[in-house]
């Protein structure tokens, strides 16, 4: 099953989802597709003026182009997501590294999709980590196994 992870660049979540036999949907896959394309129009991410237009699917035209551009990256992941694991208030989303509005919109869209959803906090201690991993493993076991990769 294709499992959306949030934070979308999380090493721990990507590894755990893959370890338990599912396919993680992470932002790196979409960025990889963009930067591996023939001809780099707008380095480093190759986000062209066309991309915020794709974001119009999710946000109105008066919404900042940053949000719409990010949503154009998230779009293929959100449409493919069959389940999701969300870690609430990750450190990475604080400050200028994260876009709070995009994150809120992504979380809102995931809740609206009516797919199996697991919400957790990042662990700080070993005991918390045990609960964190146990909950993720139980959640992933309850999903259908991943189909063979094409």
């Amino acid at each position: 099953m294709k499992v959306f992870i949030y934070p979308t660049n999380s090493l721990i979540l990507y590894d755990l989802v893959e370890r338990f036999g599912h396919e993680p949907l992470a932002i790196m896959q979409e960025i990889g597709k963009k930067v591996r394309k023939q001809g780099l129009d707008s380095p480093p991410m190759n986000m062209t003026p066309e991309d915020p237009k794709f974001g119009l699917k999710y946000a109105a035209v008066e919404v900042p182009s940053g949000v719409r551009g990010r949503m154009s990256l998230f779009d293929p992941l959100l449409s493919k997501a069959e389940a999701a694991i969300i870690v609430t208030e990750p450190v990475i989303s604080f400050g200028c590294m994260g876009c709070a509005r995009t994150n809120e919109l992504v979380n809102f869209l995931l809740r609206g999709k009516k797919i199996p959803l697991l919400r957790l906090d990042y662990p700080n201690t070993e005991e918390d980590a045990k609960i964190f991993v146990y909950k993720i493993s139980e959640f992933l076991k309850s999903l259908k196994p991943s189909e063979d990769k094409k």
């Binding site: 590894d15 790196m28 960025i31 480093p44």
Partner: peptide
């Protein structure tokens, strides 16, 4: 622990 990366190693950007 393994994860995917968008950029190739040594990507100039």
């Amino acid at each position: 622990f393994i994860k995917e990366r968008g950029f190739a190693p040594g990507e100039p950007y």
